[in-house]
Simulated assay, not measured.
Amino acid sequence: MAGFSFAAGILPSGATVTRAAGPYSFTGSNGLTQFGSAANVARFDFDPVTLACRGLLLEPPRTNYIVSDAATIPLAQNIGSTWVANTGVAPDGTTTADRLVNTNANTSHGFVLNASSSRPAGPLTLSAFAQVSGLPRFGLRAYDGAKYFHRGTFDLTTGTVGALGGVGTAAIVSYGSGRYRCSTSGTSAAAVQTYIMEAGTSAWTVQQTSQGDGVSGVYVSGVQLEDGLVATSFIPAPTAPATRPGETLSLNWAPQGVTDGLYSVLYTFADGTMQPVQQQVTGGVSTISPASLNSYTIRSVSILQTPASRTISLGDKAPRSATLVDTGSRSATILT
């Protein structure tokens, strides 16, 4: 079967990734976050825990609307907490994670973050990397002026979503060494500008008071606010909001004997799911953008179906045969 595999962490012959220059990141083969900005560089994402190659990372354009460097991150309001910069290890292995510490008071704790500008009504995702620094729970909330339309609390000791409030979803992904990427997603009915990060005790769920000790907290890094209902790879925004350009994947099928026509092409993703996509091969080449895909980490691509009026024969030494014809008048003669 004609196809391309990205499981080895290298771009196979005939595959080309196109992307304009701009900030991007991915998890390298050492399990650490890697950064770059060069155009047309394929990103292969590795599991930060097992170090296995997950596949080719192909993502749509996204903007991180929250400045991510501790020196300039817009901490608009302190809610019973203190912020200590560059005290923990971030996913890239550098000591650039910041520490959110709860004050010695029985009150609400956290920080309000203001994005560069209000985001219009619609789908939004807020995410951050978090790790225990004395407190086991971490919370993210988004407020649209009337309510917290999505909010989540994460257990950083078990790697699970501890509680979920509002209308939305929450996800937590391990990045090894007790570090997790936490995210909440939801669709707001009004413009949104206020976002909150919190640290809490093991009994803490969503938006509640707790007794702090002035010492315990949570390490935080890689804060990101983006449009859409899924957290894409982290976009470094050290001094101002930054945009990761979108990518496209072009595949040259001609050397594999695939002629021009409309094909059903099967995309297999890192999470094991699959998606058949109708693709036109012209001049031997097909091109796809991630907007057409259900997932953004591709393990392999293969031809499922030949175009109309083309026949493929497969055979061994047995004298029997069978012809299969689908509803699109495509046929394959199999000798068995």
Rank of each mutant, 00 (worst) to 15 (best):
L32H: 08
T306D: 14
V112W: 13
S313H: 14
Q208D: 14
G328R: 13
D155T: 02
F129R: 10
S177N: 15
V215F: 09
S210A: 15
S309I: 05
S309D: 15
G165E: 05
L314P: 00
S117M: 12
Y65G: 04
A146I: 10
A190I: 02
A70L: 05
R179K: 12
T33I: 13
T232V: 10
S289W: 02
V67D: 09
G257C: 08
A191F: 06
S37V: 11
V301R: 03
T201F: 01
A128G: 04
G283F: 09
E247R: 06
A97H: 02
D227A: 12
L51N: 12
P48K: 06
G178E: 07
R19N: 03
T18Q: 13
R151Q: 15
Y195F: 15
P290L: 09
T16V: 15
V230H: 04
S331N: 14
R151M: 14
A191N: 12
R244S: 14
L314F: 12
I73L: 14
D260A: 11
G212E: 02
T16I: 11
S302V: 13
A39T: 03
G152D: 05
T103A: 13
G88D: 05
V265Y: 00
A52R: 12
T209K: 07
T248P: 03
Y296C: 08
G122E: 05
T306Y: 12
T82P: 00
I288Q: 06
F111L: 10
F6S: 07
V101C: 03
W83R: 04
E247H: 08
P307S: 10
L251G: 04
H109R: 01
V325E: 11
G9H: 05
N78K: 14
T268I: 10
Q77Y: 13
T205W: 07
G36E: 01
Q279E: 12
A231F: 03
I334L: 11
V173Y: 07
P61G: 01
A97F: 02
R179P: 06
S292C: 00
P255N: 04
A85H: 05
Q224N: 06
A2Y: 11
A191W: 02
S174F: 00
L58Y: 08
L75P: 06
N252Q: 10
G162Y: 04
A42E: 03
D326L: 09
L75E: 07
T63A: 07
N104F: 06
S289H: 01
R310H: 13
N86W: 02
R181Q: 12
Y219G: 04
S309P: 00
V67K: 09
P276D: 07
T333C: 02
H109I: 00
P241H: 02
P123R: 00
N102F: 04
N104M: 06
S133H: 13
Y195Q: 10
I298K: 11
G134F: 08
V223S: 05
T273D: 11
L262A: 13
A71V: 10
V173K: 09
N78T: 14
A142I: 10
S177Y: 08
E247N: 08
L335N: 15
T187F: 06
W83F: 14
G212T: 01
T27C: 14
T239S: 14
Y263Q: 05
G214Q: 03
T297H: 10
A121Y: 00
A191E: 11
G14I: 00
F46P: 02
N104Y: 00
T96P: 00
T259M: 10
